[in-house]
Amino acid sequence: MNELISNSALFGLIVSIAAYEIGLFIKKKFRLAVFNPLLIAIFIIILFLLGFNIQYDEYNRGAKYLSYLLTPATICLAIPLYEQLEFLKKNVKAILAGIISGVITSMTTILILSILFNFNHREYVTLLPKSITTAIGIDVSTELGGIVTITVAVIIITGVLGNIMAEKVCKLFKINEPVARGVAIGSSAHAIGTAKAMEMGAIEAAISSLSIVVAGIITVFGVSVYANFM
């Protein structure tokens, strides 16, 4: 029975969507930031796979079709960006200053904490691309000789954490300007964070999408300097 179900190519796909729907339902019911639908879905699926002793590869046979959609979906982030283009032009200096400061903050905090935790060079460079989009992060980590599986894990956890924290942090630290919120979310938590920015508003979504691109590209160059520091 078990094998029959997990052998179907649709298995992983259905499990993923169903788990996300459960996540949405729980979020609606409790209205707490910790009940993030994405986080709930990830937990449910991991527990499900462990509970029924199903291998990740079996799950991913169906679930990978969702991953395939990520590139076209990311390309579509250009749509909110285009719709807010005038707004973006007006704030270009502020946006660039914000993103550059974000990239420097990211790499500097990682450098300091890596020294504190006594990480070796390999572990340090593994973490350097943590705030940028997975696709760029994998390449950066490979280029620097990092441990790519950990880089991917760290990037995803960063995104989910950013997604959960975004609203609270903006409120607590009085980041009220929609443009500033977009920069804050996109620079710190890439596309997974941007999913939250889309809920917050059109400007937040557009600027957050832009920040992913710009922060990613600046990081590619920034890491070549920071990699020498430890």
Binding site: Y20, A41, I42, S67, G159, A195
Partner: peptide
């Protein structure tokens, strides 16, 4: 958001 699930799992 659903598209990030497989990588996260």
């Amino acid at each position: 958001p659903i598209m990030f699930i497989p990588a996260a799992v």
